[in-house]
Design a protein around this nucleic acid. Structure first.
Lengths: 221, 221
DNA sequence: ATGTCAATAAATATCGATATTTTGGGAGGA
DNA sequence: TCCTCCCAAAATATCGATATTTATTGACAT
């Protein structure tokens, strides 16, 4: 009865579908930062009812991608240089912690996941950006996945996504020339596998700060 | 048309009301950790429609107080010693950071807020627990409020609330004899006003860890 | 001109009913 | 006795309509 009109291949609940789609639209900037998100409009866009849309938007507030103003609807979270700087700083602190804990708890299983996700990321590097982005996130989250602190990992994942949004913002205003980061990734992977906390953390943070500096310059908000 | 049946004095949206009430019920353990939260049941409890209830529950997911299982409803977030330990550890890291930043950015305004909220907390100490809890949170958040990092403060506030829940859990299983913490509070306040980051942070963390050890023993989950 | 206020338009929030999915339990067969 | 399959009951998810609230416009008085 529902026609397949999007890349949505799998059947899922309307709320979840709306959540995924809206999330993606905000991350990629299709729904610009700060924009009012009217229920009617989104309801039409996703051809679903108002309830799933409202619920998806409520869930997106968890991710700090949507702001809710009581009795006055929703809007995409605003973006600013200050916010970007804050995200970068927090990421550096939290990922440093998570990575060190992950290494401290290192297991063969975890190491294997690192190698695998890194491999997938390398393979995806040629393909469409979307696929690479996905693999890149998976690799970075795998680095932290052994911290035995689910909440810390959740915070890191949240911040990761918020950062992504700024990548898309920067891509718009400037010619987004993708730096060659594969060497940096190798370095992080190697240090992690050697269980060298200091070296792994240092290279991870440097990886983020380099990208951060670049993005910060490219942003014109 | 709506009759005043709760402590709810102010008129507000049904969703917001449900959010506040449910949040409180989870924090205080009226809705026990892990419990299934059925829409019908809550709808009756709050005498409101299903939509506000669902939306409030979705919002509570942000706070990690409710878990959502797609197509299978909601439940109060489970509690465990491991989770408690994680919260304590994260709080120590994040509040340490936030407090140091707050002190680094110290202003007369901020100092005055500290003194004021501390005063309020002392005055509330005799009164009903609820009021003191409120003032206690306000004081602790005031300590961090000058960090110039809204997200960091948000994380700290979240963790603070999650911790509260364990206080109520401990209060149930053991005779919850309130430690005399006023000296510790004075010490934190004084160090903050002296702009001594190391001493402030050390006393704050010690404050948390002492309570943490105590709670950890009292918990029987 | 300008600011205020009321009337209208638009959007949000909420309700009640229905469709869909999951859960629980029991009959029938191995 | 235990497993599997199917049906009934319960609960979730969703829709469509309506009530409330907020935003907008334009007339009127200053």
């Amino acid at each position: 009865m529902t026609m397949i009109d999007e890349t949505q291949v799998k059947e899922t609940s309307a709320t979840h579908g709306a959540y995924i789609t809206l999330r993606d639209m905000i991350l990629t900037g299709v729904l610009p930062a700060g924009q009012k998100l009217k229920i009617e409009q989104l309801r039409g866009l996703l051809n679903t009812g108002a309830s799933p849309v409202r619920e998806a938007l409520s869930l997106l507030t968890s991710d700090m991608l949507v702001e809710r103003i009581d009795q006055r609807g929703f809007r995409a979270a605003p973006a600013s240089k200050a916010n970007f700087a804050e995200i970068l700083a927090l990421r550096c602190t939290l990922e440093d912690l998570a990575l060190r804990q992950s290494i401290a708890n290192a297991t063969p299983d975890w190491e294997e996941q690192l190698v695998l996700t890194h491999h997938h990321m390398k393979k995806a590097s040629g393909q469409g950006t979307k696929l690479f982005e996905e693999a890149h996130k998976t690799f970075h989250m795998a680095l932290l996945a052994n911290s035995e602190s689910p909440m810390l990992e959740r915070f890191c994942a949240q911040l990761y996504d918020l950062n992504i949004r700024y990548r898309y913002l920067a891509a718009k205003s400037a010619t987004y020339q993708k730096r060659d980061v594969s060497a940096e990734h190798e370095e992080i992977l190697d240090a992690a596998i050697q269980r060298d906390q200091d070296r792994a953390s240092a290279s991870l943070l440097s990886h983020y700060r380099l990208t951060g500096d670049y993005l910060s310059r490219a942003l014109d908000i």
